[in-house]
Nucleic acid binder design. Structure first.
Lengths: 205, 205
DNA sequence: CGGCATCCATTTTGATACTG
DNA sequence: CAGTATCAAAATGGATGCCG
Protein backbone atom coordinates (compact mmCIF):
# COMPACT_ATOMS: atom_id res chain seq x y z
CA UNK A 1 0.00 0.00 0.00
CA UNK A 2 2.87 2.38 0.69
CA UNK A 3 5.87 0.85 -1.01
CA UNK A 4 5.32 2.17 -4.51
CA UNK A 5 7.57 4.90 -5.68
CA UNK A 6 6.46 8.42 -4.71
CA UNK A 7 3.79 7.20 -2.34
CA UNK A 8 5.39 8.18 0.95
CA UNK A 9 6.68 11.36 -0.62
CA UNK A 10 3.11 12.36 -1.38
CA UNK A 11 2.20 11.64 2.22
CA UNK A 12 5.09 13.80 3.35
CA UNK A 13 3.90 16.69 1.22
CA UNK A 14 0.42 16.39 2.67
CA UNK A 15 1.80 16.30 6.18
CA UNK A 16 1.83 20.08 6.10
CA UNK A 17 -1.79 20.44 5.19
CA UNK A 18 -3.93 20.04 2.06
CA UNK A 19 -2.32 20.62 -1.31
CA UNK A 20 -3.66 20.99 -4.77
CA UNK A 21 -2.73 18.84 -7.70
CA UNK A 22 -0.41 21.38 -9.22
CA UNK A 23 1.27 22.08 -5.91
CA UNK A 24 2.03 18.42 -5.52
CA UNK A 25 3.49 18.31 -8.99
CA UNK A 26 5.74 21.23 -8.15
CA UNK A 27 6.75 19.67 -4.87
CA UNK A 28 7.63 16.37 -6.50
CA UNK A 29 10.07 17.32 -9.22
CA UNK A 30 10.52 14.60 -11.74
CA UNK A 31 7.20 12.98 -11.17
CA UNK A 32 5.02 12.68 -14.21
CA UNK A 33 1.58 14.16 -14.05
CA UNK A 34 -0.23 11.00 -15.03
CA UNK A 35 1.64 9.02 -12.44
CA UNK A 36 0.62 11.48 -9.76
CA UNK A 37 -2.99 10.99 -10.77
CA UNK A 38 -2.57 7.24 -10.48
CA UNK A 39 -0.93 7.38 -7.07
CA UNK A 40 -3.53 9.78 -5.75
CA UNK A 41 -6.26 7.45 -6.91
CA UNK A 42 -4.64 4.51 -5.15
CA UNK A 43 -4.10 6.41 -1.96
CA UNK A 44 -7.69 7.52 -2.04
CA UNK A 45 -8.85 3.93 -2.53
CA UNK A 46 -6.82 2.94 0.50
CA UNK A 47 -8.33 5.82 2.46
CA UNK A 48 -4.96 7.39 3.11
CA UNK A 49 -6.08 10.67 1.60
CA UNK A 50 -9.24 12.22 0.30
CA UNK A 51 -10.22 14.84 -2.22
CA UNK A 52 -11.65 17.93 -0.69
CA UNK A 53 -13.00 21.21 -1.96
CA UNK A 54 -10.85 24.01 -0.68
CA UNK A 55 -12.78 26.75 1.06
CA UNK A 56 -12.97 30.11 -0.58
CA UNK A 57 -13.91 31.22 -4.05
CA UNK A 58 -13.43 28.70 -6.78
CA UNK A 59 -13.81 25.78 -4.41
CA UNK A 60 -10.61 24.43 -5.84
CA UNK A 61 -9.97 20.74 -5.38
CA UNK A 62 -7.24 19.62 -3.07
CA UNK A 63 -5.98 16.52 -1.35
CA UNK A 64 -5.85 15.99 2.36
CA UNK A 65 -4.73 13.19 4.63
CA UNK A 66 -7.43 11.17 6.28
CA UNK A 67 -7.07 9.91 9.83
CA UNK A 68 -5.46 6.84 8.44
CA UNK A 69 -3.05 9.03 6.54
CA UNK A 70 -2.36 11.13 9.61
CA UNK A 71 -1.56 7.93 11.45
CA UNK A 72 1.42 7.60 9.15
CA UNK A 73 3.18 10.44 10.95
CA UNK A 74 5.14 8.00 13.13
CA UNK A 75 6.45 6.44 9.94
CA UNK A 76 7.66 9.81 8.72
CA UNK A 77 9.03 10.45 12.18
CA UNK A 78 11.09 7.28 12.30
CA UNK A 79 12.41 7.94 8.83
CA UNK A 80 13.26 11.52 9.72
CA UNK A 81 14.99 10.34 12.83
CA UNK A 82 17.02 7.86 10.89
CA UNK A 83 17.97 10.40 8.28
CA UNK A 84 18.94 12.95 10.88
CA UNK A 85 21.28 10.42 12.42
CA UNK A 86 23.35 10.00 9.29
CA UNK A 87 26.79 11.46 9.76
CA UNK A 88 27.43 12.16 6.15
CA UNK A 89 25.24 14.89 4.72
CA UNK A 90 23.41 13.52 1.74
CA UNK A 91 25.09 15.89 -0.65
CA UNK A 92 23.48 14.44 -3.74
CA UNK A 93 20.03 14.90 -2.29
CA UNK A 94 18.17 18.14 -2.22
CA UNK A 95 16.68 19.30 1.00
CA UNK A 96 13.73 21.58 1.30
CA UNK A 97 12.92 23.56 4.36
CA UNK A 98 9.40 22.17 4.32
CA UNK A 99 10.82 18.69 4.76
CA UNK A 100 12.72 19.88 7.78
CA UNK A 101 9.50 21.33 9.08
CA UNK A 102 7.76 17.99 8.62
CA UNK A 103 10.53 16.34 10.60
CA UNK A 104 10.14 18.96 13.29
CA UNK A 105 6.41 18.46 13.42
CA UNK A 106 6.28 14.69 13.48
CA UNK A 107 8.88 14.37 16.18
CA UNK A 108 7.77 17.28 18.32
CA UNK A 109 6.74 16.26 21.80
CA UNK A 110 3.22 16.69 23.04
CA UNK A 111 4.39 19.80 24.81
CA UNK A 112 4.56 21.51 21.44
CA UNK A 113 0.77 21.59 21.37
CA UNK A 114 0.96 24.35 23.95
CA UNK A 115 2.80 26.60 21.52
CA UNK A 116 -0.10 28.90 20.77
CA UNK A 117 1.80 31.77 19.16
CA UNK A 118 0.79 32.11 15.56
CA UNK A 119 4.18 31.92 13.93
CA UNK A 120 5.18 32.43 10.36
CA UNK A 121 8.48 31.20 9.12
CA UNK A 122 9.88 32.13 5.75
CA UNK A 123 12.88 30.17 4.61
CA UNK A 124 14.17 31.44 1.31
CA UNK A 125 11.01 31.23 -0.77
CA UNK A 126 9.18 28.71 1.38
CA UNK A 127 6.64 30.04 3.83
CA UNK A 128 5.21 28.02 6.69
CA UNK A 129 3.14 28.80 9.72
CA UNK A 130 2.69 27.03 12.99
CA UNK A 131 0.34 27.20 15.90
CA UNK A 132 -0.70 24.83 18.65
CA UNK A 133 -4.26 24.83 19.86
CA UNK A 134 -3.49 23.28 23.21
CA UNK A 135 -4.27 19.79 21.98
CA UNK A 136 -2.25 19.44 18.85
CA UNK A 137 0.00 21.46 16.64
CA UNK A 138 -1.01 22.74 13.30
CA UNK A 139 1.82 23.16 10.85
CA UNK A 140 0.99 24.33 7.41
CA UNK A 141 2.66 25.43 4.25
CA UNK A 142 2.04 28.91 2.96
CA UNK A 143 1.62 32.34 4.50
CA UNK A 144 -0.11 32.60 7.83
CA UNK A 145 -3.88 33.14 7.46
CA UNK A 146 -3.89 36.02 9.94
CA UNK A 147 -1.30 38.51 10.96
CA UNK A 148 1.20 36.34 12.82
CA UNK A 149 2.38 37.25 16.29
CA UNK A 150 5.84 36.09 15.38
CA UNK A 151 7.44 36.24 11.99
CA UNK A 152 10.86 34.85 11.22
CA UNK A 153 12.85 34.80 8.03
CA UNK A 154 16.15 33.21 7.20
CA UNK A 155 18.00 31.23 4.59
CA UNK A 156 17.89 27.47 4.43
CA UNK A 157 21.25 26.74 6.08
CA UNK A 158 20.30 28.95 8.98
CA UNK A 159 16.96 27.23 9.31
CA UNK A 160 18.54 23.82 9.46
CA UNK A 161 21.22 24.95 11.86
CA UNK A 162 18.52 26.29 14.12
CA UNK A 163 16.33 23.24 13.69
CA UNK A 164 19.20 20.95 14.59
CA UNK A 165 20.21 23.02 17.54
CA UNK A 166 23.61 23.87 16.15
CA UNK A 167 22.88 27.57 16.37
CA UNK A 168 20.84 29.47 18.88
CA UNK A 169 18.25 32.02 17.97
CA UNK A 170 20.34 34.70 19.66
CA UNK A 171 23.42 33.86 17.65
CA UNK A 172 21.50 33.81 14.43
CA UNK A 173 19.91 37.15 15.11
CA UNK A 174 23.18 38.75 16.11
CA UNK A 175 24.95 37.51 13.03
CA UNK A 176 22.16 38.85 10.90
CA UNK A 177 21.20 35.45 9.53
CA UNK A 178 17.79 35.46 11.17
CA UNK A 179 15.35 38.32 11.15
CA UNK A 180 12.61 38.34 13.72
CA UNK A 181 9.42 40.34 13.80
CA UNK A 182 7.88 39.65 17.17
CA UNK A 183 8.97 38.41 20.54
CA UNK A 184 12.45 37.03 20.83
CA UNK A 185 11.26 34.82 23.67
CA UNK A 186 8.68 33.22 21.41
CA UNK A 187 11.31 32.56 18.80
CA UNK A 188 13.51 30.86 21.37
CA UNK A 189 10.56 28.83 22.55
CA UNK A 190 9.68 27.82 19.01
CA UNK A 191 13.03 26.23 18.34
CA UNK A 192 13.10 24.68 21.79
CA UNK A 193 9.76 22.92 21.30
CA UNK A 194 10.27 22.05 17.67
CA UNK A 195 13.59 20.62 16.76
CA UNK A 196 14.80 17.98 14.42
CA UNK A 197 15.50 14.59 15.84
CA UNK A 198 18.92 13.18 16.58
CA UNK A 199 20.87 15.96 14.98
CA UNK A 200 24.54 15.19 15.19
CA UNK A 201 26.26 17.02 12.41
CA UNK A 202 28.50 19.92 13.18
CA UNK A 203 28.68 21.60 9.82
CA UNK A 204 29.38 25.25 9.93
CA UNK A 205 26.63 27.61 9.13
CA UNK B 1 18.57 5.95 0.15
CA UNK B 2 15.61 3.79 1.15
CA UNK B 3 12.85 4.69 -1.24
CA UNK B 4 13.79 2.50 -4.16
CA UNK B 5 11.65 -0.50 -4.77
CA UNK B 6 12.59 -3.59 -2.72
CA UNK B 7 14.97 -1.69 -0.49
CA UNK B 8 13.01 -1.74 2.74
CA UNK B 9 11.85 -5.27 1.97
CA UNK B 10 15.47 -6.36 1.95
CA UNK B 11 15.98 -4.65 5.27
CA UNK B 12 12.96 -6.45 6.63
CA UNK B 13 14.35 -9.79 5.54
CA UNK B 14 17.65 -9.04 7.21
CA UNK B 15 15.89 -8.01 10.39
CA UNK B 16 15.82 -11.66 11.39
CA UNK B 17 19.53 -12.20 11.01
CA UNK B 18 22.00 -12.63 8.16
CA UNK B 19 20.78 -14.17 4.94
CA UNK B 20 22.49 -15.45 1.89
CA UNK B 21 21.92 -14.22 -1.61
CA UNK B 22 19.75 -17.15 -2.60
CA UNK B 23 17.71 -16.94 0.56
CA UNK B 24 16.94 -13.33 -0.18
CA UNK B 25 15.88 -14.21 -3.70
CA UNK B 26 13.51 -16.84 -2.34
CA UNK B 27 12.16 -14.43 0.24
CA UNK B 28 11.52 -11.75 -2.35
CA UNK B 29 9.41 -13.45 -4.98
CA UNK B 30 9.31 -11.55 -8.19
CA UNK B 31 12.57 -9.77 -7.69
CA UNK B 32 15.10 -10.30 -10.44
CA UNK B 33 18.47 -11.64 -9.49
CA UNK B 34 20.41 -8.81 -11.04
CA UNK B 35 18.30 -6.22 -9.32
CA UNK B 36 18.94 -7.84 -5.98
CA UNK B 37 22.66 -7.57 -6.63
CA UNK B 38 22.26 -3.90 -7.47
CA UNK B 39 20.22 -3.11 -4.39
CA UNK B 40 22.61 -4.98 -2.15
CA UNK B 41 25.47 -2.99 -3.59
CA UNK B 42 23.71 0.29 -2.95
CA UNK B 43 22.78 -0.66 0.56
CA UNK B 44 26.34 -1.69 1.19
CA UNK B 45 27.60 1.65 -0.15
CA UNK B 46 25.25 3.41 2.20
CA UNK B 47 26.48 1.22 5.07
CA UNK B 48 23.06 -0.16 5.75
CA UNK B 49 24.31 -3.72 5.36
CA UNK B 50 27.59 -5.53 4.91
CA UNK B 51 28.78 -8.71 3.35
CA UNK B 52 30.02 -11.23 5.82
CA UNK B 53 31.46 -14.70 5.64
CA UNK B 54 29.14 -17.07 7.40
CA UNK B 55 30.86 -19.22 10.04
CA UNK B 56 31.20 -22.90 9.40
CA UNK B 57 32.53 -24.87 6.49
CA UNK B 58 32.38 -23.21 3.12
CA UNK B 59 32.48 -19.76 4.69
CA UNK B 60 29.48 -18.90 2.59
CA UNK B 61 28.83 -15.23 1.97
CA UNK B 62 25.87 -13.58 3.55
CA UNK B 63 24.45 -10.15 4.17
CA UNK B 64 23.93 -8.63 7.54
CA UNK B 65 22.59 -5.33 8.79
CA UNK B 66 25.12 -2.87 10.09
CA UNK B 67 24.39 -0.68 13.08
CA UNK B 68 22.98 1.86 10.71
CA UNK B 69 20.78 -0.83 9.25
CA UNK B 70 19.72 -1.99 12.69
CA UNK B 71 18.77 1.57 13.46
CA UNK B 72 16.06 1.20 10.84
CA UNK B 73 14.08 -1.06 13.16
CA UNK B 74 11.94 1.86 14.36
CA UNK B 75 10.99 2.45 10.73
CA UNK B 76 9.87 -1.15 10.38
CA UNK B 77 8.14 -0.83 13.73
CA UNK B 78 6.13 2.21 12.75
CA UNK B 79 5.16 0.61 9.47
CA UNK B 80 4.17 -2.59 11.25
CA UNK B 81 2.15 -0.62 13.71
CA UNK B 82 0.38 1.19 10.95
CA UNK B 83 -0.33 -2.00 9.07
CA UNK B 84 -1.61 -3.72 12.17
CA UNK B 85 -4.05 -0.90 12.69
CA UNK B 86 -5.80 -1.43 9.37
CA UNK B 87 -9.28 -2.80 9.87
CA UNK B 88 -9.53 -4.47 6.58
CA UNK B 89 -7.21 -7.43 6.23
CA UNK B 90 -5.04 -6.94 3.16
CA UNK B 91 -6.54 -9.92 1.39
CA UNK B 92 -4.63 -9.36 -1.80
CA UNK B 93 -1.32 -9.34 0.03
CA UNK B 94 0.50 -12.42 1.16
CA UNK B 95 1.63 -12.60 4.73
CA UNK B 96 4.51 -14.66 5.96
CA UNK B 97 4.96 -15.68 9.54
CA UNK B 98 8.49 -14.28 9.47
CA UNK B 99 7.06 -10.84 8.75
CA UNK B 100 4.85 -11.17 11.78
CA UNK B 101 7.89 -12.15 13.76
CA UNK B 102 9.70 -9.02 12.57
CA UNK B 103 6.75 -6.95 13.71
CA UNK B 104 6.84 -8.69 17.06
CA UNK B 105 10.54 -8.10 17.42
CA UNK B 106 10.70 -4.48 16.44
CA UNK B 107 7.84 -3.46 18.65
CA UNK B 108 8.72 -5.61 21.63
CA UNK B 109 9.37 -3.64 24.77
CA UNK B 110 12.74 -3.60 26.44
CA UNK B 111 11.38 -6.14 28.89
CA UNK B 112 11.52 -8.71 26.13
CA UNK B 113 15.29 -8.74 26.47
CA UNK B 114 14.81 -10.67 29.68
CA UNK B 115 13.22 -13.56 27.82
CA UNK B 116 16.16 -15.93 28.05
CA UNK B 117 14.41 -19.15 27.14
CA UNK B 118 15.78 -20.50 23.89
CA UNK B 119 12.58 -20.82 21.95
CA UNK B 120 11.96 -22.35 18.58
CA UNK B 121 8.81 -21.58 16.71
CA UNK B 122 7.77 -23.46 13.62
CA UNK B 123 4.91 -21.95 11.66
CA UNK B 124 3.97 -24.14 8.75
CA UNK B 125 7.32 -24.45 7.03
CA UNK B 126 8.95 -21.38 8.55
CA UNK B 127 11.21 -21.93 11.53
CA UNK B 128 12.36 -19.16 13.83
CA UNK B 129 14.09 -19.00 17.14
CA UNK B 130 14.22 -16.37 19.82
CA UNK B 131 16.23 -15.68 22.89
CA UNK B 132 17.01 -12.62 24.93
CA UNK B 133 20.42 -12.20 26.47
CA UNK B 134 19.31 -9.77 29.14
CA UNK B 135 20.28 -6.76 27.06
CA UNK B 136 18.58 -7.35 23.77
CA UNK B 137 16.55 -9.96 22.00
CA UNK B 138 17.90 -12.10 19.26
CA UNK B 139 15.34 -13.25 16.76
CA UNK B 140 16.51 -15.33 13.90
CA UNK B 141 15.16 -17.33 11.03
CA UNK B 142 15.86 -21.04 10.85
CA UNK B 143 16.10 -23.86 13.33
CA UNK B 144 17.49 -23.13 16.76
CA UNK B 145 21.24 -23.65 16.94
CA UNK B 146 20.99 -25.71 20.13
CA UNK B 147 18.27 -27.86 21.54
CA UNK B 148 15.62 -25.31 22.44
CA UNK B 149 14.07 -25.23 25.88
CA UNK B 150 10.74 -24.45 24.32
CA UNK B 151 9.50 -25.57 20.98
CA UNK B 152 6.19 -24.53 19.51
CA UNK B 153 4.55 -25.42 16.26
CA UNK B 154 1.37 -24.20 14.67
CA UNK B 155 -0.19 -23.06 11.43
CA UNK B 156 -0.03 -19.49 10.23
CA UNK B 157 -3.53 -18.40 11.27
CA UNK B 158 -2.91 -19.68 14.77
CA UNK B 159 0.40 -17.86 14.92
CA UNK B 160 -1.14 -14.58 13.93
CA UNK B 161 -4.07 -15.04 16.28
CA UNK B 162 -1.61 -15.64 19.10
CA UNK B 163 0.62 -12.79 18.02
CA UNK B 164 -2.32 -10.41 17.97
CA UNK B 165 -3.63 -11.58 21.27
CA UNK B 166 -6.87 -12.86 19.82
CA UNK B 167 -6.21 -16.33 21.15
CA UNK B 168 -4.45 -17.39 24.28
CA UNK B 169 -1.81 -20.05 24.41
CA UNK B 170 -4.06 -22.18 26.54
CA UNK B 171 -6.92 -22.01 24.11
CA UNK B 172 -4.68 -22.81 21.19
CA UNK B 173 -3.20 -25.82 22.94
CA UNK B 174 -6.57 -27.13 24.02
CA UNK B 175 -8.01 -26.85 20.56
CA UNK B 176 -5.03 -28.68 19.17
CA UNK B 177 -3.92 -25.79 17.02
CA UNK B 178 -0.68 -25.25 18.92
CA UNK B 179 1.71 -27.94 19.96
CA UNK B 180 4.18 -27.20 22.70
CA UNK B 181 7.31 -29.04 23.68
CA UNK B 182 8.51 -27.38 26.84
CA UNK B 183 7.08 -25.29 29.60
CA UNK B 184 3.61 -23.95 29.12
CA UNK B 185 4.51 -21.00 31.33
CA UNK B 186 7.34 -20.05 28.98
CA UNK B 187 4.98 -20.19 26.04
CA UNK B 188 2.55 -17.89 27.79
CA UNK B 189 5.39 -15.54 28.64
CA UNK B 190 6.62 -15.56 25.07
CA UNK B 191 3.39 -14.30 23.64
CA UNK B 192 2.98 -11.84 26.47
CA UNK B 193 6.36 -10.22 25.87
CA UNK B 194 6.26 -10.41 22.09
CA UNK B 195 3.06 -9.36 20.49
CA UNK B 196 2.11 -7.52 17.41
CA UNK B 197 1.32 -3.88 17.75
CA UNK B 198 -2.13 -2.40 17.77
CA UNK B 199 -3.96 -5.54 16.81
CA UNK B 200 -7.61 -4.80 16.41
CA UNK B 201 -9.10 -7.37 14.12
CA UNK B 202 -11.42 -9.95 15.51
CA UNK B 203 -11.32 -12.51 12.74
CA UNK B 204 -12.03 -16.01 13.84
CA UNK B 205 -9.21 -18.45 13.91
C1' DC C 1 26.26 -25.48 -7.49
C1' DG C 2 25.91 -20.40 -5.13
C1' DG C 3 26.87 -15.79 -6.41
C1' DC C 4 26.49 -12.66 -9.48
C1' DA C 5 26.76 -10.19 -14.62
C1' DT C 6 24.50 -9.92 -19.17
C1' DC C 7 20.88 -9.76 -22.35
C1' DC C 8 16.23 -8.89 -23.73
C1' DA C 9 10.98 -8.60 -23.75
C1' DT C 10 7.77 -5.96 -20.79
C1' DT C 11 6.32 -2.79 -17.80
C1' DT C 12 6.83 1.57 -15.57
C1' DT C 13 7.98 6.11 -15.77
C1' DG C 14 9.10 11.22 -17.17
C1' DA C 15 8.18 14.64 -20.20
C1' DT C 16 5.13 16.82 -23.16
C1' DA C 17 1.00 17.68 -25.74
C1' DC C 18 -3.72 17.87 -25.14
C1' DT C 19 -8.61 18.55 -23.40
C1' DG C 20 -12.51 20.20 -20.51
C1' DC D 1 -5.65 24.72 -13.55
C1' DA D 2 -6.82 19.60 -13.08
C1' DG D 3 -6.20 15.76 -15.11
C1' DT D 4 -5.80 12.50 -19.58
C1' DA D 5 -3.45 10.78 -23.72
C1' DT D 6 0.76 9.81 -25.85
C1' DC D 7 5.39 8.28 -26.59
C1' DA D 8 10.34 7.73 -25.77
C1' DA D 9 13.49 6.48 -22.14
C1' DA D 10 14.42 3.99 -18.06
C1' DA D 11 13.65 0.32 -14.78
C1' DT D 12 12.48 -4.27 -14.17
C1' DG D 13 11.66 -9.78 -14.33
C1' DG D 14 13.26 -13.68 -16.23
C1' DA D 15 16.31 -16.50 -18.68
C1' DT D 16 20.84 -17.41 -19.46
C1' DG D 17 25.90 -17.29 -19.08
C1' DC D 18 30.02 -17.10 -16.49
C1' DC D 19 33.19 -18.30 -12.84
C1' DG D 20 35.34 -19.88 -8.80
Amino acid sequence: MLGDRWTLLIVRELALGPRRYGDLLDALPGMGTSLLATRLKHLEEYSVLRRIALPGPGRAAAYELTDRGESLMPVLASLAEWGAGLDEPPAEFTTRAAWGMVAMRVTASGEAASYDTLTELVVDDEAMWVRGDGTKVRVQLGRAPLDPALRMACARPTFFALARGQTTVDEAVESGHLSIDGGLADARRFFRLFHMPGARRTDSL
